[in-house]
Simulated assay, not measured.
Amino acid sequence: MTRGARIFIWQHVTKLTLDEVQQVIPLYHPIWANTDPIDIAYADRHATHGNFRNWARLTAHALTALERTGREHPDQEVLRWAFSRLGS
């Protein structure tokens, strides 16, 4: 018997607008709470495109960068590094 994810109901989630991103992402994870809204918009424009799954992936990579640099929240330098880890 194989084990796998069980999906009861598929939910379609629409792309977040930039206004929604600016409201939701700072609440999603503490690293975004004090991040400059300009940097959040930069991340959305260049990597996440309003997709929450992309934000989750970016957050994981940004956390690694913050641990390595000792910074408290992502800036554009940290974000560019994290973008490079996202792949295509």
Rank of each mutant, 00 (worst) to 15 (best):
M1L: 13
R3F: 14
A5W: 15
A5I: 15
A5G: 12
A5D: 15
R6I: 15
R6L: 15
R6F: 14
I7N: 12
F8W: 14
I9F: 14
W10S: 13
W10I: 08
Q11L: 14
Q11N: 13
V13M: 10
V13D: 13
V13H: 15
T17V: 08
L18G: 03
D19A: 15
E20H: 08
V21F: 05
V21N: 05
Q22V: 07
Q23H: 10
Q23Y: 06
Q23K: 11
V24F: 07
P26M: 07
P26F: 02
P26S: 05
L27K: 13
L27N: 08
Y28H: 06
Y28P: 00
H29L: 02
H29P: 00
H29E: 11
I31C: 04
W32N: 01
W32M: 01
A33H: 11
T35I: 01
T35R: 00
T35K: 00
D36R: 02
D36A: 09
D36Q: 04
D36F: 01
D36K: 03
I38Y: 03
I40T: 00
I40K: 00
A41W: 01
Y42H: 09
R45N: 07
H46W: 04
H46A: 03
A47N: 04
A47R: 01
A47E: 07
T48P: 07
H49T: 02
H49Y: 14
H49E: 07
N51L: 09
F52H: 02
R53Q: 11
N54F: 09
N54H: 14
N54L: 09
W55R: 03
A56I: 02
A56G: 06
R57N: 13
L58C: 07
L58N: 08
L58I: 00
T59R: 05
A60C: 08
H61S: 09
A62T: 13
L63T: 00
T64C: 06
T64N: 10
A65P: 00
A65D: 05
L66I: 04
L66A: 09
T69D: 06
G70A: 05
G70K: 04
E72F: 01
E72I: 03
P74M: 02
Q76A: 09
Q76D: 07
V78L: 14
L79Q: 12
W81G: 07
W81A: 06
W81T: 10
A82L: 08
F83N: 10
S84M: 06
S84T: 08
S84D: 12
R85M: 14
